[in-house]
Simulated assay, not measured.
Amino acid sequence: MHPRQRRAFQYTMNQARNAYQAEQWSEAFALLEQAHILGQRSTRAHTLSHWWMFKVAWRQRDWHEIRGQWLRLPAALLMSRLWVPEGNTGGANVSPLKPMPIPASLKMHMETR
């Protein structure tokens, strides 16, 4: 992962953890979706974002999201280096195979120049 992208991922994950600690579930999940986009090509980062999505879903007792994240965790471990749908936010509300546009606020962190 490019250093600028890694810093953006770490910052976003820290913000998500803070929101989690404050029990701000919607904010935490939205930040984790951003972290997912930033980190999905790194096995560690990709898996970490899904793990925290699972934790948020568990705290909310959101059974649909719990199941979705439980299925995505092994896929993140196995597929991150091979193929990921660019821009996918990682939540159970979207197909794990669907590419999505990368938000402009994240694009600048993902360039490798």
Rank of each mutant, 00 (worst) to 15 (best):
M108W: 07
N14I: 01
Y11C: 00
F9W: 14
R7L: 10
L97P: 03
Q40K: 06
A30P: 00
E23F: 08
N88P: 11
R6P: 01
G68D: 07
A104W: 04
R44Y: 14
G39E: 01
S42Y: 03
F54L: 15
L97H: 11
P99I: 00
N88H: 08
L71V: 06
M53C: 06
A104P: 00
A28T: 03
R81C: 06
L82A: 12
R44H: 12
H50F: 03
A75W: 15
W51V: 14
K107I: 05
R67A: 11
R72K: 15
R113W: 11
W70D: 03
A19P: 03
S42P: 01
Q34N: 14
Y20L: 13
E27Q: 13
Q69Y: 08
A22D: 14
A19E: 07
Q60H: 09
N18W: 05
L82V: 14
M108C: 04
R6G: 03
G68T: 08
A28H: 02
G90E: 10
M53L: 10
V56I: 14
W70N: 05
L71P: 00
Q60L: 15
R67T: 13
T112W: 08
P74T: 07
A16D: 07
W25R: 05
N93L: 09
Q5A: 11
A28R: 01
T12H: 02
I102W: 02
V94K: 05
A76L: 06
S49I: 01
P101W: 10
E33T: 11
L38Q: 03
T89S: 10
R6W: 09
A75S: 15
V56E: 02
L32M: 08
W58T: 10
L71A: 12
G87I: 12
A45P: 00
M108N: 08
A57C: 03
M13Y: 10
H50L: 04
A104V: 13
L31Y: 02
H109A: 01
I66L: 06
E86T: 15
E111D: 08
N93V: 09
I66M: 15
E86C: 09
A28M: 03
E65H: 12
A35D: 02
R4A: 02
Q34A: 13
Q60Y: 06
R59V: 07
H64E: 14
W58C: 04
E23V: 04
D62T: 09
L78C: 13
P74S: 11
L77V: 09
R44F: 15
G68E: 09
L78E: 07
F54R: 12
Q34F: 00
T43D: 00
H46C: 03
E27G: 12
R17L: 11
W83Q: 04
F29A: 10
Y20R: 08
